[in-house]
Design a protein around this nucleic acid. Structure first.
Lengths: 338, 338
DNA sequence: CATATTGCAGAGAGCGCTCTCAACCGATTC
DNA sequence: GAATCGGTTGAGAGCGCTCTCTGCAATATG
């Protein structure tokens, strides 16, 4: 067992080599101003010479901070392991933000409640992290509220389904969906259907609500099929919709992946897009540019959502109080499918 | 600043409540056998009552272990943030394996060498993790070798480009590609082209090598275009190929994403698949089932690759010596595109 | 019955670091 | 010349935990 950690230099070593006390060495390492320049230099060159790296565990022990943030994701969330890079983008955003302040990202997958749920809860409340970002929650998951109540700074990515004081970062899904549907209506479409997302996730629920609102506004009947954000479910839903109303001339899909599935189903049913049926998606994933035809879709800034969540949780961990809701803007990107 | 950590119970508290010494409480918490049952129970109920969770920092300080493993990914790697869920699958695999032994996963993105590179190196060699899994390396990245030399247990995901003793987990890309191309040849295709992956990544290089070998074996000329594993690059490469040799009757793409791009380009060029041109991909991503036509492809067990990498690094961290190369099997999945 | 052996609990020494507090020192002021 | 005062540095007390070593019964052995 070759433990490299064994012979790592300690602050004590650095201090000795620089001919100062441990306290002073610590000051230099932590950038305190009140150290005489020539002493500072001596310490720094000792650090350099020995290749000293502070021991995080020792530091955490006294500061009571861990300098790491947990990113908790529902393993079952279709978005996490489905076709689209939603997950990756969120991670990238969080990662960028944490990196900037030299914090670590601890990733935790949580299965459908059970042991892994408890594990995450224990870990986070156990003081192993300075805060947690939770995303892709299904149903009325009690985790955010629990952690929050235990005093752990928590920020959710996406509105919570239960009444809760846990702050979150999201886009205005309802409003964005509404705008998308209105676009369809404004361009002369009469029978607009929707492929909704899972109804146990706020993104799914709110986008459907937006669709309903827009339809109601213009006095039209809703036509809904539910998917789970994946391509396959989108294709399936589209077929159902076509069966329910062969006359439909537009469809709003609550995710680009489902929209692509719909495009495929439409093609197989012999409908032309956008001539016979217009299609609008949601997300503006990379691939939306390359579908046939290119997809008109609602762009949401996924990476920024991650960044913001990180920034918020960092602020909470720093003792600030933050606004409970932070909504980022969306934009309807018009391409050829609608 | 509401520091929840402040009033967390310590082992001392547990010991006091159970009427035993700290040492004994520690034994119980760590599952030592040599504790009398009735004492054990007393301690456990104290733990329960107080909601005690061990302080990882304190524990690490003395054990010199951190119980966490770093997963390092090249942020620039196209596979990480491109259309396919490669990244997610690796993470899932690693995560599953670590969870089983209650270790944490610390995710680190590393940009194209520079500050973030140093940061990762410092962090890992600084004893903050018990080991590191590095994947999606571009070019001859020195990071794996450096960490390894510094005594950090390292396992790479994918063969390294430089001569190195760092162990890795991968599939036999060359062999798999060869088999795929041979399938094309065996089914009567004569002019087989390839869309290769990036030539600064082993997966890209080796798959091209396999293609070349198969072509050479049957005395045919190679026709190569290079992509970067993304859809777009696949479509672009396909157009080039079609320009280079309008007579080609098959193409082997080094990733499913590129294969899908190729399918699209082929369709736009008016070629029928598989009638005019046969297409074979690589990966067997979820979406390969849903392309038009469904994609014949080489399946590689991505999640298992992650699992294995985790398992290996854990073994190294445990002091075992492991086999330097671990290859997982691939399988040609025949669907309709070839 | 004395002694060796075993089984289990407690005492106590740190792990490497931060941070408070006291000490010191040259410089300024009365 | 004594008192005061910013500006620095050092000493030392832990942070919460593990682990070795010691101590002490209870049991087995000669």
């Amino acid at each position: 067992m070759v433990m490299s950690g064994r012979d790592r230099p300690t602050l004590e070593n650095v201090a000795q080599r620089a001919g100062v006390s441990r306290a002073t060495a610590s000051r230099v390492v932590n950038g305190s101003t009140s150290v005489a320049p020539h002493i500072r230099d001596k310490v720094l060159s000792a650090v350099e010479a020995l290749g000293y790296v502070p021991n995080q565990a020792a530091r955490s022990l006294v500061t009571q901070r861990t300098d790491s943030i947990a990113l908790v994701a529902s393993e079952t969330a279709s978005r996490v392991f489905s076709d689209d890079p939603f997950f990756s983008s969120i991670i990238r955003g969080v990662s960028l933000e944490l990196e900037a302040v030299d914090k670590q990202l601890v990733l935790m997958m949580v299965g459908p409640s059970g042991p892994s749920h408890d594990r995450v809860e224990r870990y986070c409340t156990g003081g192993h992290v300075d805060g947690a970002i939770i995303f892709s929650m299904h149903g009325a998951d009690p985790l955010p509220e629990r952690l929050s109540r235990a005093g752990v700074p928590v920020v959710c990515n996406g509105r919570l389904l239960i009444q809760s004081s846990v702050p979150y970062v999201d886009v205005d899904n309802e409003d964005a969906a509404r705008a998308a549907v209105r676009h369809l209506l404004d361009t002369g479409r009469r029978r607009v259907a929707t492929i909704a997302g899972p109804q146990d996730m706020s993104a799914g629920i709110d986008r459907l609500k937006g669709y309903r609102a827009a339809m109601q506004d213009s006095g039209r009947r809703s036509l809904v099929a539910v998917g789970d954000f994946t391509r396959q479910s989108g294709a399936l839903a589209m077929s159902q919709l076509l069966g329910d109303d062969p006359q439909l001339d537009a469809v709003f899909a609550a995710s680009d992946a489902m929209a692509e599935g719909a495009l495929r189903a439409l093609r197989q049913a012999g409908r032309r897009v956008p001539d016979d049926v217009a299609v609008v998606g949601f997300d503006d994933m990379d691939f939306a540019r390359d579908t046939e035809p290119p997809l008109t879709t609602v762009r949401q800034p996924i990476t920024d959502l991650g960044r913001m969540a990180a920034r918020q949780v960092l602020r909470m961990a720093g003792g600030e109080t933050i606004e409970p809701v932070l909504l980022l803007p969306t934009e309807l990107v018009k391409r050829e499918s609608a």
